Computed example of a mutant assay.
Amino acid sequence: MNGVLTALLAVVVAAGAALVLVEAIHLLVQRLGKRSELWADLARTAHRPFRALVVIYAIQQALRSGVDNFAGRGTVLHLLVLCIIAAAAWLVGALLLVVEDLALNRYRTDVPDNLRARRLKTQVVMLRRVTVAAMVVLSIGVMLMTFPGVRTIGASLLASAGLISVVAALAAQSTLGNVFAGLQLAFSDAVRVDDVVVVEGEWGRIEELTLTYVAVQIWDDRRLILPTSYFTTKPFQNWTRNSSAVLGTAEVDVDWSAPVEDLRAELRRICESSDLWDGRTCVLQVTEAIGGMIRLRALVSASDAGTLWDLRCLVRERLVGWVWENNQGALPRLRADTDPPPPQRHGVALPAPDPGVGSTTAFHPADEEKR
C-alpha cells in the first residue's frame, strides 16, 4: 500500500512540475507570437502535443528513478513508453503543420496571378500527407518493437519478406498505383489545387488532391470524385496550366444583311466598358455563311475562367440587344419557296392540265374580256 501511495505522490509531483514548465514556455511563446506569425502558430498548434509529451515523460522518469516497490511497475512503465512514442509522433505532426502553414502563408492563392502559389500548395499538402502517413506507420512499428515477442516474430518474418512483398503488391496494386499517381501529379505540374479543368464533360476546379483521389468542384457545386490514376491515364483539359487568363467565344446568328463593321465596333465598346475584360483580345469574325444566315463569333479574353463566363454572357446579351434595337432587318430569317412542284408520275413530270377542260380555276372578269 505504501508503495502505491508513494507512486501516486511521485506521479502528482512530476506531472505538476511538468505542467508548470509547459505553461511557462507556452506563455513565453504566446508573447513572442505577438511579433511573429511563426511563434503564434507554434503556440496554437504544438501546445497540446508538447504538453502531453513532457507530462508523460516526467511521470515515466519519476516512476523509473524514485519508485520501485509497487506491483505492476513494469507494465505501467511499458504503457508510458508507448504513450511517449505516440505523443512524440503527435508533436512532430503538429510541427509539420506549422512548417506547412509557414510555407503557404508566403504565397496567396486568392489573387489573379497565383500559379506559383497553387503549385507550392499542391506539393506541400501532398508531402505532408505522405509524411504523416509514414510517421503513423513508423510510430506503430516502433511501438510494436517494444514487445519482445514481436521482435522475435519480426526476425523470423525477414526470411519471407520477398514473398510477402509480392503478395502485398498484388493485393494493393490499385491503391499503390493511385498513390504513385498522386505523387506524380504533385510534382509534374499536370494538375494543381484550384486549377480549372474539363473532365468527363464537366467544367470545374480542382478542390482537393490527395494520394488516392481528386475532388473536382463542378460549376453547379457538385463534386466529381476521380482516382488520381485517372489524370495520368486519360486526357483532360487544364485551362490554367500556364496562367489563369483564358479566351472564350460568344456566337450569334444574323441575316446576311447584318452590318458586320457596326457590330464589330459595338463589340469593342462592350469590352472596353466592362471590368470583366482584361484588355488582351476582342475580335469579331464571320465564321459561317450557310443556310440563309451568317454566324458571328466574338472572341474575348478574361483574367480567369469564371470571369470569362460572365463576359461571354454579357457580350452575347449586348450584341443581341443591339441588333434588336438598331437593325431588326438583320434578325435571322427563314426563306422558303411557296410555289408547288409540278406533278410527277414515275419520276417524269406530267403536262400541265388544260384550264378549259375540267379546270377548277376560279373565274375572273379579265378572262371574259380576253375572249
Results as ranks from 00 to 15, higher is better:
A168P: 01
I294M: 11
V137F: 11
T281Q: 09
Q61V: 03
T109F: 03
Q60N: 13
S165Y: 02
F187I: 15
V193S: 03
A336R: 07
A172G: 09
V13H: 02
D262C: 04
A190L: 09
A103S: 14
R318C: 12
D194C: 11
D194Q: 13
G201A: 14
A215C: 05
D221K: 15
V197F: 13
E200M: 14
H26P: 00
V4K: 04
E325V: 14
P342S: 07
E266N: 13
L157Y: 03
R64F: 12
L308A: 05
V357K: 07
L97C: 03
S274P: 06
I164K: 00
T109P: 09
G358Q: 09
W256G: 04
V98C: 07
I270Q: 02
L226M: 15
G154A: 08
C313K: 04
V98Q: 04
Q123A: 10
L314F: 10
E251S: 13
L9C: 07
S174A: 12
L28S: 10
P355A: 10
G306D: 14
C313I: 07
T6L: 02
Q184R: 12
S65I: 03
M145Y: 06
S156M: 11
I140G: 14
R371E: 11
T228F: 01
I56L: 05
A161I: 05
G356N: 11
L311Y: 04
L77G: 15
A89Q: 12
R264S: 12
W239Q: 15
V199W: 01
D278I: 06
D262R: 10
D194R: 10
E266H: 14
P332C: 10
L176T: 01
T122P: 04
V125S: 07
A161D: 01
A40R: 08
P340T: 10
E272G: 06
S188R: 13
S156H: 09
T240G: 08
L183P: 07
A52M: 12
R64N: 14
L42A: 12
T361H: 06
R192E: 12
A181Q: 03
G201Q: 11
T361E: 06
R345I: 08
R192C: 14
I225D: 08
H47R: 14
V136T: 15
V150E: 00
C83S: 04
V136Y: 06
